[in-house]
Amino acid sequence: MSSLKKVFNSADEAIADIMDGAVLMLGGFGLCGIPENCIAALVKKGARQLTCISNNAGVDGFGIGLMLQQKQVKKMISSYVGENAEFERQLLSGELEVELIPQGTLATRCMAAGYGMPAIFTPAGVGTEVAIRKEQRMFNNKLYLLELAFEADFALVKAWKGDTDGNLVYRETARNFNPVMAMAGKITIAEVEELVPIGSLDPDHIHTPGIYVHRVFKGNNYEKRIEQRTVRKLAD
């Protein structure tokens, strides 16, 4: 569905129908390019028993870490979950279910969903515990695992610019998982730093065509926390 009906006034409105038990995709790599406004609204709303598909699980007190603190997450599907003491505590106490999967598998299972393909074959994890109970097939003398496309009720993504039709442009490495998750959600909610009128984005430069985006809103007060601030001195 096209038209201005995609534009929402706030994160609260955009996520209002995310209920307990929903399966969510959340874009971002570490804290870079995460949907900060959607996460804040989810924490406020208090939806629980959520399954979160996200490369990482935030840090203590930021990103998905905020949802973990409120015990809103039932299950995390991620590739790397370090840097989060509360996460580790809930995992070891059995409060939180975690499925760790290779990062490329995570990205490609999103992509498959957005491309309308039920499954992919990947060599990642062959011969490891990731391969347990998975179908394998040999192509050109190499073994591959069958991995299923993800199904998510909502994809929450963050873009740099978006127009009122939901066309999205990302910035630098804040792109990461956002485009493939945007394609994969049954309902995709995009928060953008700049919401611009139709026609102001160059069609040649759009990363996610609006057909994949159901809701778009202008996010506010981005903190964009840096996880590892590394610099060189001017003298170097």
């Binding site: 790599f29 570490g30 870079c32 630098e172 804040a174 601030r229 590394t230 610099v231 060189r232």
Partner: peptide, 16 residues
């Protein structure tokens, strides 16, 4: 350089 860090620009180790 110090002061030119961009939170949108990190590597896989999450370093600026």
């Amino acid at each position: 350089f110090e002061g030119e860090e961009d939170p949108d620009l990190i590597n896989a180790g999450k370093q600026t």
